[in-house]
Nucleic acid binder design. Structure first.
Length: 424
DNA sequence: AATAGAAACAACCGCAAACGT
DNA sequence: CACGTTTGCGGTTGTTTCTAT
């Protein structure tokens, strides 16, 4: 298959995205959701292929992205996850809210690899370099560079083929259910043993990841608590279990006051794709410096089912997410940007968002925000032409037909289950 | 100040799985 | 079940920015 069909079309732009293109894509997805990616560029008025739009959205425009420098805890987690998952960046990213696989991949290739080598650890095998070197047969035709590549591939292959108890495979979102066996490296065994001793592995058969609503995983080497509060759910890009306590690892980012700063189900319903979408007017404004959900706000996402009833879910934040510099535009690690660079980035973001906000009307489909700071801004929002349904409280919904309504109802139930809430 | 190399970041490419018909 | 399309992933490359000389 290879090249995406839309890429064959002529006059498609490539390369870096301009602020105008970002604006178009952001506005389109905010208003309508992405739906079929291949139709997005046409509908959004972009000379890009759908694939490029999708990538741009996932890696840059998505509102739940954390951005900023990686914390030491995040780096540690990436290393530990890589030891188990290999180069499965998407699965690693699933354990790091607000981070993309691309971001993690870049960090790994540009920074973590080097750090590990400096510490005498083979980044591919996670073993001491001397041991890793001994494993390789003498007279191997591999060059060092080639060896690195092959080693990485074999590592990923190993981790993908290692027999995992099904529950544990699901725990990491490993979808493959094939029973191919290879000898796991000691690193794998170490972690797998940890899982085996920590979790019930009696279940047979492949269960969907949604069974993991309780969300847990354990990394004994880092003294991570079992109930970390993160789970991989097929319907949610980010799923935070508010009932579970933050682990030591995540405590500085998800302290006990935080609750669902951003929920972004990866489902196709537009109403759910933009449940909470707030962009500060300026990073210079302390009250608006945090991109999404970092202020004291209360969001109420509502929907109407096809039988006319309406439901809602209250998503509250006490404003502690990102506090204590846990969300930092300036880099705070040696892997992060310098303050100067981050400031430049921040200013660029400012300019881009200011331009966006000046030229567009934001939309919060089916979402109302109750916050003294945000209300004035949100009060300016106008419902779009597709918002054809309203409830008694004035909320409007983009519900074009009964099928959509049913889908929304279903999606919301999924969302509710992920948060342990029920709707009446 | 100019330049080269390194680092960081963004985006593309190709493949394969998933999905729809 | 076959086939075409779409989506997601991981590897790789290109570009920008930073830093040392």
């Amino acid at each position: 298959m290879g090249r995406h069909s839309c890429c064959y079309k002529q006059k498609l732009r490539k390369g870096l995205w301009s602020p105008e293109e970002d604006e178009k894509l952001l506005r389109h997805i905010t208003m309508y959701g992405h739906g079929c990616w291949s139709s997005v560029p046409k509908l959004a008025g972009l000379q890009r292929c759908g694939k490029s739009c999708r990538l741009r959205w996932i890696n840059y425009l998505r509102p739940d992205l954390k951005r900023g420098a990686f914390s030491q805890q995040e780096e540690s987690l990436i290393i530990e996850l890589h030891a188990v998952l290999g180069n499965r960046w998407s699965q690693i990213a699933a354990q790091l809210p607000g981070r993309t696989d691309n971001e993690i991949k870049n960090l790994w290739n540009s920074c973590i690899k080097k750090k590990l080598r400096q510490k005498g650890i083979d980044p591919n095998t996670h073993k001491p370099l001397s041991a890793a070197e001994n494993i390789e047969k003498p007279n191997s035709p591999m060059t060092i560079k080639n060896n690195e590549k092959v080693s990485a591939e074999s590592q990923a292959e190993k981790s993908s083929k290692t027999i995992l108890p099904v529950d544990q495979r699901n725990l990491f979102g490993v979808s493959s259910c094939s029973n191919i066996t290879t000898t796991p490296s000691p690193t794998h065994e170490f972690f797998l043993d940890s899982f085996i001793t920590s979790h019930d592995s009696s279940t047979t058969g492949c269960r969907p990841n949604s069974d993991l609503a309780a969300g847990y995983f354990s990394f004994q080497p880092l003294n991570y608590e079992p109930n970390i509060g993160l789970s991989v759910n097929p319907n949610t890009t980010l799923c935070f279990n508010p009932d579970s306590r933050s682990s030591e690892m995540m405590s500085d980012q998800f302290n006990s006051d935080m609750m669902l700063p951003t929920i972004f189900p990866s489902i196709s319903s537009p109403i759910l794709q933009t449940p909470i979408h707030i962009k500060p007017l300026s990073h210079n404004d302390p009250s608006a410096v945090l991109p999404f959900g970092a202020q004291n706000w209360e969001a109420t996402s509502s929907f109407s089912s096809n039988n006319g009833s309406s439901s809602s879910v209250d998503l509250q934040s006490n404003g502690s997410f990102f506090e204590n510099n846990t969300y930092s535009w300036p880099g705070d690690t040696d892997c992060g940007k310098s303050n100067k660079q981050a400031q430049i980035h921040s200013n660029a973001e400012d300019a881009k968002w200011s331009q966006y906000l000046e030229s567009t009307t934001p939309f919060l489909l089916g979402t109302t925000i109750q916050n003294p700071t945000l209300e004035p801004m949100l009060s300016e929002m106008k419902p779009e032409k597709h918002l054809i349904t309203t409830d008694g409280s004035g909320n409007s919904f983009w519900l074009q037909n009964q099928n959509q309504q049913q889908t929304y109802a279903k999606d919301f139930q999924t969302l509710a289950m992920a948060f342990g809430q029920t709707f009446n």
